[in-house]
Design a protein around this nucleic acid. Structure first.
Lengths: 206, 206, 206, 206
DNA sequence: ACTTAACCGAGACGGTACGTCATGTCTTCCA
DNA sequence: TGGAAGACATGACGTACCGTCTCGGTTAAGT
């Protein structure tokens, strides 16, 4: 967790002295969002500039986050969709739901001026990338693996296939399209296509 | 093209006066490689430091490359494996050959002190990443699509499947493992597993 | 007056509520003295550090003194010798007594770890210097002038000499040695030498 | 010497690369002088502000001087009067000449907006004060001691008086007036008064 | 005993400056 | 003309203090 105020909140030391102002905190994060929406490249978002924009001292930022990336991670965290509701009846439907969330995330990445800008340059900030992996991709992954396990149980999925590999087969194509190939189309039925094609296989029938 | 020396080589003015020293050029690129092999993070490779290491003036670097990333791209370009020879008889075998090259590339990325370091932080340098995409990933992609087309022709692949989607189904899982999930195992038979599983599908037989 | 507590002491509002703690006051001044004796340069004595050392809030210091210098002045004030007893019989003897007090002060300045440190860097703190002038040098000056006037009355001093000038003639050499030339020797008989030489003049006799 | 460029000028390293710009140097010193003349307290002359005023990078200042004080010393050095011409015939006249230069310096200190400001706060900068002592006061002192020696030789001065003490007797009163008591008058005939009174002594005649 | 106002420690806050570093451009001398 | 050296303006870095301000909590005088 980036915000040490949260970590040490229960420690005696933490409850003494003037408490950190939530208004200041908002002012900082909103300032960053505004700058990004104005099209400022992430690389140009120096702590100095953020502080200036937010009308805040640099130390006030460093008091909360150890650096630029921790700050961005925190901001990004606040912008993600919640995990989708899975019906749990059909593995196929649940997979489509999961993959479609990935797809929608990809679409957001491209349409939202903000997210687009963030993501296009997220590669500039390794820690931000790692945090995205850890807080978004990885949880997603665990959900999908749960779905697949249920699929094996209820006979929708071959029992002799490595679950981890299966996960990559379903999720890999979508992730590659959303994260690595920013020009690839993300049609509405893409999730369904992927799931069905992977389930059916590519060998000619009969 | 990154190296403007190449661009202006044909201009009359360019052939007059003292020619650029190739020794200087080698000294720069070798200096960079040495630094990377010594474990210096890419982010710490400032132009200033590269010039110091190579015993070269900063202007001499800027004369050849417009910045750090162009320089790295140029260096990286000289390090890639050639495209594999494809037998052309069996789509399955050719796909395995292609995916296994991707896999080996991933393995190299992790074992070579140099490549590992470069790749781990390549995300810090968007242009380098783009160049990698353009010069390595994209050509690979075109080869695979060729293989798939031949597969449709000779009946190894269902004709009703979008070739582009099929490409993602095969390549996606491997790319995700090598590029996005740096902890995933890259076993020797992974390419074969992926190809066969995607061809067969995941639905229980019988 | 530096201590505003004294200034506002007579205001009705001031007599209510919790009175200022003398213990806190001592803790601050003693903390400063300790730091100085430990050899910390005056310039490094930030309010922040003083508060930390004394285990006191910064505001508690600012409540008592308007700044660093006022605090130091207050501390220094508590350290000066009382004015010497003058016999009053002989102008020469009284002058020697006065000048020797100046000399002893100079000697103290150099021997006392504390005073040495304070004085060596007093120049860094104009207000401290001024306060030293006003509370130490100036009173001294008035005493000497009194001595000289008595000298004129009882015939020990030429009546046609400007008293103010005479004061400078006696006191000047000693002050220069103690304050401006910190390497000059301050021998025990210096006061006597100065007084007698100035009285006698430097012209060859006969 | 504060300017390392001067010190290392003869070293091979110093003669290569782009030479330091004299224009920049002037721009810095003139900027400082302008600020002082505008009444900015010395304590408010941060390197940051000086750089801003001179339209110069901070590093450009640090390249030449190791800090604020070295810079001021260098500037002050360029503002002092040359040593006076001494006739050499009469010790009394030469002493008066020397003391009067001290007096005139004191007068300048008070009249020149610039020098006044510099001197009034020179105490804030110990190194500046030391440099003033070393480059102005001390040479002056050696000149006076030479004059006194000649005085002993030609019989104008008692031979049994310590020359160093004699120097303090003459110079001390003037220095005290100019440096320590900024309110003391500095009349035109002060030098003469001091010299004659010290020579004659203060004892009543007859 | 109860109120009340000032005290106290801790530490947040907007500023300003510190001295260092890298950027990309420029200027000079040497080969 | 190319190239090494390094000056230059710019601007960010992360730290330290400044003097002010809020907190929760304490301490006495006046009720």
């Amino acid at each position: 967790m980036a915000r040490d105020g949260v970590d040490v909140g229960h420690i005696v030391k933490g409850v003494r002295g003037r408490p950190r102002s939530e208004a200041v905190e908002r002012s900082i994060t909103e300032g960053v969002l505004k700058l990004i929406e104005d099209g400022v490249p992430l690389a140009d978002l120096s702590i100095e500039r953020i502080a200036r924009t937010a009308g805040v001292g640099k130390a006030t930022i460093y008091r909360r986050w150890s650096g630029k990336e921790e700050l961005f991670v925190d901001i990004l965290r606040g912008m993600d969709e919640p995990a989708p509701d899975l019906a749990g009846d059909s593995m196929r439907d649940d997979l489509i739901t999961c993959l479609d969330q990935l797809r929608r995330r990809g679409v957001n990445l491209r349409s939202s001026a903000l997210l687009h800008n963030v993501f296009a340059q997220m590669k500039s900030l390794p820690k931000l990338w790692e945090a995205y992996q850890a807080t978004v991709i990885e949880p997603q992954r665990r959900v999908v693996i749960g779905v697949l396990r249920r699929g094996v149980e209820n006979g929708e999925l071959r029992a002799d296939v490595d679950i981890v590999l299966a996960n990559d087969l379903f999720v890999g194509p979508m992730l590659v399209r959303t994260l690595l190939r920013s020009d690839a189309p993300l049609d509405k039925d893409l999730a369904e296509q992927i799931v069905d094609t992977v389930l059916d296989g590519l060998r000619p029938t009969g």
